[in-house]
């Protein structure tokens, strides 16, 4: 299963590898030239690549090529198939984000003889801490949802890119203003708040994807036992 999922994600995986190498090269460049802060500020675009290269085509291409039917008839349950593809895509996403984030810290900032210093938790929110990861995972999920609903790669890519811009707007204008008084200087509160919001959106997108694929997620609702014959109600005396 893992191998099939990798084969299916391979071209997207290579695309993201190229993007990751590009950011690493940029980080090395920043170290030698006076381009202070460039790699970190450009790293916001990594999640766009995740959504557009990896997330959006993942399901949309299955529908375009009809490959999903083949998989579904191979004795693999739809849930296992989806879980396998998501696990591989998630691993690629987290690995790419960790490498780019590490390059920003270790190559671009650490090597210049001046330690990175982020003046306030909110100032670095879109590039620092947990948010790069939460953001990349959210863009992956949004791409999946768009692909599952639209079943067309071009449309899914467009919706995902639009979602990325909306997310950026959220980071630029929304989140910094919503931080409650007293949390302003608490790195973990600000980070967990923002990442929690994105992971909440991610959960919604996953549920939406399952619905769009006709896979009812197991919701904690009591279901009646399936019976063919409706039992006769017992009338109270």
């Amino acid at each position: 299963m893992t191998w099939v999922a990798w084969r299916q994600a391979r071209s997207a995986g290579y695309g993201l590898l190229a993007v990751t190498l590009g950011f690493t090269a940029l980080a090395l460049l920043e170290r030698t030239e006076e381009l202070s802060g460039m790699t970190r500020s450009l790293s916001i675009y990594l999640s766009l690549f995740v959504g557009v290269l990896l997330g959006a085509p993942l399901l949309a291409q299955e529908f375009e090529h009809g490959t999903y039917r083949m998989v579904w008839t191979q004795g693999v349950t739809r849930v296992r198939w989806l879980a396998g593809r998501c696990a591989v895509a998630l691993t690629i996403t987290l690995a790419g984000t960790a490498v780019v984030h590490g390059a920003v810290i270790a190559l671009a900032e650490g090597g210049r003889g001046r330690p990175a210093l982020l003046p306030a938790p909110v100032d670095g929110l879109d590039t620092a801490g947990l948010s790069p990861y939460a953001r990349a995972v959210w863009m992956l999920a949004l791409g999946l949802l768009a692909g599952a609903v639209l079943r067309r790669t071009v449309g899914a890519v467009a919706v995902t890119a639009g979602g990325w811009m909306a997310t950026q707007l959220l980071f630029d204008n929304g989140l910094p203003r919503w931080v409650p008084d007293g949390w302003q200087d608490d790195f973990w509160a600000v980070q967990l708040g923002a990442s929690g919001l994105l992971l909440g959106l991610t959960a919604l997108a996953v549920v939406g994807t399952l619905f769009a694929l006709g896979l009812r997620p197991a919701l904690p609702v009591r279901r009646p036992a399936v019976t063919l014959v409706r039992p006769t109600p017992i009338r109270p005396d």
Partner: peptide
Amino acid sequence: SGVVAVLNVSADADATTRG
């Protein structure tokens, strides 16, 4: 990736605390 991510996030947390 998880290990690298934890190191990165703690480096950012440290830099922000110093900031």
